[in-house]
Design a protein around this nucleic acid. Sequence first.
DNA 1: TATTGTTATACTCTATAACTATA
DNA 2: TATAGTTATAGAGTATAACAATA
Lengths: 167, 167
Amino acid sequence: MDAERRQKVTAYFALMEAGALLRHHVEQQLRRDGDLSYVQFRILAQLANAPEGTLRMTDIADGVVYSRSGLTYQAGLLAQSGLVRRETSPDDERAVAVTITQAGKERLDSILPGHVATVNRDLFGPLSEDDVRAMADVLSRVRDHLRTIPPRSAAPRPGAKKVERAS
Amino acid sequence: MDAERRQKVTAYFALMEAGALLRHHVEQQLRRDGDLSYVQFRILAQLANAPEGTLRMTDIADGVVYSRSGLTYQAGLLAQSGLVRRETSPDDERAVAVTITQAGKERLDSILPGHVATVNRDLFGPLSEDDVRAMADVLSRVRDHLRTIPPRSAAPRPGAKKVERAS
DNA sequence: TATTGTTATACTCTATAACTATA
DNA sequence: TATAGTTATAGAGTATAACAATA
């Protein structure tokens, strides 16, 4: 009863703190070794795994950032650095096709070894193979469940018209 | 071999994303129901659990924020709102004793039920009791290990003198 | 009308370095 | 000299709302 409640408190705070600390470490490595933010890194990685190295903004948005403008901002930084290219999509003139460039691929390749080393040391250092399995299993479910709940800012456009309130 | 590598990739990204999403949801609840950031919430909670409701800045810093100035900033916001009180420590004139006020306790109490409900729903909703146990166990170790590694900004004062590099 | 994406703007948070004061 | 904390400042990131354009 009470023991379970304590487990939950422990699990909750451990997740929050481990997530924050790991992100902090990882951001430092990415910034130091390749002058990238974590979000930029994720965008590049997604593009590198996509056919043709191309995705539309909306595709990228799923699981990387919370607001559309935030993604525009980050993609803009990547474009400025020449790591991605943006052009109007051929099939849908509204859409923007983002493509990783050669420079982008090289940047990714130059960062990856150090990144893997950092994660292996800082995250997996104290874990057994079973631990990793359990963590992957449980946190995948948590992530999927959280994605389910309205993020409240990546989608909220339909009813974007609740003005009123003449304070 | 390769399967283990994939497990690691899954575990790594699941942790990063679950942590970010959960924080996002939690921040919204705290902001909406009590106009607090997560850091402010943690500070208040720490103080509420301390004897006399008092801690020194340095004590609070452990596990809440990464830079001293960041803590000063957040504590300043709490003080402005009347949720904490700051006064020079009696025993050590350099130190600042931060104390939660009655208003602070009330704010915390008013937020807590909704907070617990949010976490139970968003985080623990899809988990069994065993899952929670495993998560608490593994992530506690990860957190402890990460704390071990120099955060690189909460402590770096001694050799604060590596100028050079006249680019 | 709904969807895709950008822009302008304001704001929150964080970090660095310099500084004060006490131990 | 080392420790506790603040301040000034600057920068990165994010969200909101308004907007343009295509489906």
